[in-house]
Nucleic acid binder design. Sequence first.
DNA 1: CTCACATGTCTATTTATCTAGACAATTGTA
DNA 2: TACAATTGTCTAGATAAATAGACATGTGAG
Lengths: 247, 247
Amino acid sequence: MDFIERRSGISLWRQIADQIRIAISNGEFDDSHRLPGEVALAKRFSVNRHTVRSAIASLAQEGVLRVEQGRGTFIERHARLQYPIGRRTRFSEGLAGQTRKQAGLLKDHAVEKAPAKVSRALGLKPGSPVVRLETVNAADGVPVSRATAWFPAERFADFAERYKKLGSVTAIFKSYGISDYLRVSTRISAHHADPATLSDLQLSPGAIVLETEAINAQVDGTPIEYSTSFFAADRIELDIDHGDSIR
Amino acid sequence: MDFIERRSGISLWRQIADQIRIAISNGEFDDSHRLPGEVALAKRFSVNRHTVRSAIASLAQEGVLRVEQGRGTFIERHARLQYPIGRRTRFSEGLAGQTRKQAGLLKDHAVEKAPAKVSRALGLKPGSPVVRLETVNAADGVPVSRATAWFPAERFADFAERYKKLGSVTAIFKSYGISDYLRVSTRISAHHADPATLSDLQLSPGAIVLETEAINAQVDGTPIEYSTSFFAADRIELDIDHGDSIR
DNA sequence: CTCACATGTCTATTTATCTAGACAATTGTA
DNA sequence: TACAATTGTCTAGATAAATAGACATGTGAG
C-alpha cells in the first residue's frame, strides 16, 4: 500500500501519476506491460477510482500510458534518453544512435553586455560584449532541452549568423580555426520548470527540469563558451563520463 | 508578470512558492534580501493576496523565508550546497568547508543475492551474494541524501560491521587494503521523490530528488561498489569535475 | 452466448482551494 | 503623534478536486 499526502499543494491525482511514473521507470510492471486495474490501483493508493482515472488520463496524455476500453491500461513509453556529459561533450553527437532525427532551433540571439555570472565564467571584464544564443533542441520531434549559450563577442562576432548556416557549435568553432575544445566544469541542479521553459519544452506545470551550467574551453584553457541548459527530466537523463585515463 | 496554470494538479500557492524559490536562487532579490510585499506579489502572479500568503507560509516553514509583521518578508536561506562528483568522489570530503557538521546514519544493511542491475554493474554472476548498505546523510542536522550501496560479499563480508566502527566507505576500503579507488561512471536523473525517500529526507510530497547511479572501481578497473543516491534537489546541487589532465 | 472484468459516463455530495473584502496589529518615518 | 506601508486575522462566497454510487460499453475466455 502506497501513501499519498493531502493538503500538500499537489492534487491526489498528480501524486498518483508521479508514483506510477516512478514505478514504471523502476520496472515494476515490466513483465506484462500492463497496469493493474483502476479498482486495484484505487485500493493501493486508498483513493476513489475516479481519482486514479484522472492520474491515468494525464499519463496517457503525456504518452506514458495507453488505455483500451475493456482490455486495460498499458505502458507505452518506458525509458529516458541518455545524454552523455564528459570532457568532449557535443550536443550534436550526444543522442546519436538513440533517435532517428534531431533538430536544434535558434529561438533568439543578440550581442549584449555580459551579466556578472557570464563574464566571470568566461574570464572577461564585467560588461564585455558577448553573443547570446537561445536554442531549443528536439529528438524525434519531441523537445528535450532548452539552452542559453554565451560566447565572447570580440572573437565570435557573427556566431549567430554562422549558426544559421552550420547548425552546430562544433562546426562553428572549427570555422573559427578551433579544431578541439574541452568541457571544463558542469554544475547540475533540479527544480520545477519556470514558465518560459514550460512553454519551450511543451511541458505541463510542475514538470521537473535538470539544469546544467557548463564552461567549455580551448585545449590551452581559454574559456570560449558558457551555457545553461534545461533538460526535461522525464525525457532524458545525464550520463557522466569520468574519463578512462588513470592519472 | 509571471504566469501560473490552473487545473494542473499543482495548487496555485505551490506553483508560486516554486517560482519564488527559483527567483531567489537566480539572485533576483539579492540587493535587499527582501521580498516584494504581498500585494505586489499577488499582482505579479495575478492571484489573491491570500494565495500568495499560503506560498510564503510554506517557504517560511521550510526555512527559505522569514516573515516579520509590519516590516516585510526576508530571504533567510539562499544557496544550495554543492556536492562535487569526479573521478575521486568521496562523500565524506564532498561537503567539506560548506557545513559545520555532517553525519552518516546507517539505516539498514543485509547480505543478499544481487539484483540483476547490481550484478551487471559489479561484474558478478547473477545472484552472487552482495552486501547492501542503506544510509541517510545529513549536513548541519538537515538530511540531504539517501543512498543504497552494494559491495561484493565475497570480498567485503563484514562491510556493515566496519561501517559502524569506521563510519566512512573510504576508511573501510583502506582497512581492506584498498588505498585508492576511482569513480567509473555516474548517471543522473531527476524526478519526484518516492514515499520512502520523502520520509527519510523529511520532504513534502511533490519534492524533487536528483538520483545518481554510480560505479566505483579499483585503479586496475575491478568494480568494488555500486550505489544509487537520492539528493534533495532544493538543498544540494551536483558539481561535475571533468579532470584537469589533457589526454 | 454468457459471464467476469475491464474502462467510460453520468449525477450528486462533500471537502479543499481560491477569491473578495474589511479591519486589526506592527513597524519605520516624517 | 500621525501616517503610510507592511503582515495578521476574520467572515463569506465561488470554484475546483475528491468521493460515492449506478449503469453503460467493450473484450476475452469458457
